[in-house]
Simulated scan of single mutants.
Amino acid sequence: MTHDLKESFSADSPPAPAALAAKVRTLAPSMTRSMQRVAEAVAGDPAGCAALTVTGLAELTGTSEATVVRTARLLGYPGYRDLRLALAGLAAHQQSGRAPSVTADIAVDDPIADVVAKLAYDEQQTLADTAAGLDTVQLGAAVAAAATARRIDIYGVGASSLVGQDLAQKLARIGLIAHSHTDPHLAVTNAVQLRSGDVAIAITHSGSTVDVMEPLRVAFDRGATTIAITGRPDGPVTQYADHVLTTSTARESELRPAAMSSRTSQLLVVDCLFIGVAQRTYETAAPALAASYEALAHRHAPRPR
């Protein structure tokens, strides 16, 4: 990718059946209501929808054939026929037990044991969805840029700021200059200092957080390599990103909004990015990590009396 503003998200190749449900969850919030009805239908009953013609699915969802085709293309398939094949594959996965059906939302009166079971399932599914949908070409390019960066600035607010701090701490422990900025004013004033050879990383589940987008835009304009970690691959933040790393999110509920559940997938992407950088800089990263472990060990050692 270049610094040219990019078009809306589209996959280079159709997603695998196992990744279809994750794609629906990721893109549904940015769809029109009629397209959402189609997406929800295919994700909720892949076997039933796989048996329908384009006309049948349009009638089932109260939409038009054109809407069904547009939804299929937005999900990454050349046409409805390709989507039907993916639905048949997803149905086969579910019937074999490799893709369990979605559990119910957490209710206010759920026993704590049920809460634990539901959260564990959602977390597991979120990680699997994120891994299935993560573009490893984009990840590799982001790793290459970060591994050779003079300086790395990370932007995030709210729950995403915690993920940004985690990444900055990891990178610092292998000897890289990395800073996490949570104050939007300081983020912008620091972004002004960036240039070619630097890296700026924006973490925003919604893809439209202004306090995160603005410093990334400034970094983009200054010539830094920019990376967006977002749950909305067609969100406005991506127009200022050279590389986009897409996250998935556990199902949102009244007790667990998207901003909270997004941390799981963001942390997975951050860990993948960090490990990739550590691999590329192993000769310097390994001694730096060893030195940090030793320093902490001395700090926790019992003091002489």
Rank of each mutant, 00 (worst) to 15 (best):
T2M: 09
D4N: 13
E7K: 14
F9M: 05
F9H: 09
A11H: 00
D12S: 14
A19W: 04
L20Q: 08
V24K: 07
V24Y: 03
L27F: 09
M31K: 09
T32A: 14
R33D: 13
R37K: 15
A39P: 00
A39F: 13
A41G: 11
A43L: 13
G44W: 14
T53Q: 08
T55Y: 08
E59V: 02
E59T: 10
L60K: 15
T61A: 06
T63F: 02
T67E: 09
V68I: 13
V69S: 08
A72R: 07
R73D: 01
R73G: 05
G76R: 09
P78K: 05
G79R: 14
D82G: 13
R84I: 01
L85Y: 00
G89R: 12
L90N: 02
L90C: 00
L90G: 08
A99Y: 07
P100L: 03
S101W: 05
V102D: 05
A104T: 11
D109Q: 12
I112E: 09
D114R: 07
A117H: 11
A117G: 00
K118I: 08
L119D: 00
Q124W: 06
D129M: 02
A132N: 11
V137W: 02
V137S: 04
V137E: 13
G140V: 01
A142N: 01
V143R: 06
A145W: 11
A145M: 01
A145Y: 04
A146Q: 02
A147Y: 10
T148G: 09
D153F: 15
S160L: 03
S161A: 15
D166T: 05
K170T: 01
R173P: 00
R173L: 08
I174G: 06
G175S: 12
A178F: 04
H179S: 10
H179V: 12
H179M: 13
H181I: 12
H181K: 14
P184T: 04
H185S: 14
A191K: 10
V192R: 15
V192A: 14
Q193N: 11
Q193Y: 11
Q193W: 02
D198T: 12
D198P: 12
V199Y: 11
A200F: 04
I201T: 08
T204Q: 06
M213W: 04
E214I: 13
L216S: 07
L216H: 09
L216R: 10
R217H: 12
R217F: 07
F220W: 15
T226L: 10
I229D: 10
R232W: 03
R232Y: 07
R232S: 14
D234H: 07
G235R: 02
G235D: 07
P236Q: 12
V237R: 05
Y240E: 06
H243D: 07
H243V: 06
V244F: 08
L245D: 04
L245A: 02
T247Q: 03
S248I: 01
T249W: 00
T249S: 10
A250Y: 00
A250P: 01
S253Q: 04
A258K: 02
A259Y: 08
M260G: 01
S262L: 00
R263Q: 13
T264N: 01
S265Y: 04
L268Y: 15
V270N: 11
V270K: 00
D271V: 01
L273W: 03
I275D: 13
I275K: 05
G276Y: 09
A285Y: 06
A285T: 01
A288R: 08
A288L: 04
Y293S: 01
A297C: 02
H300E: 05
P302C: 04
R305Q: 09
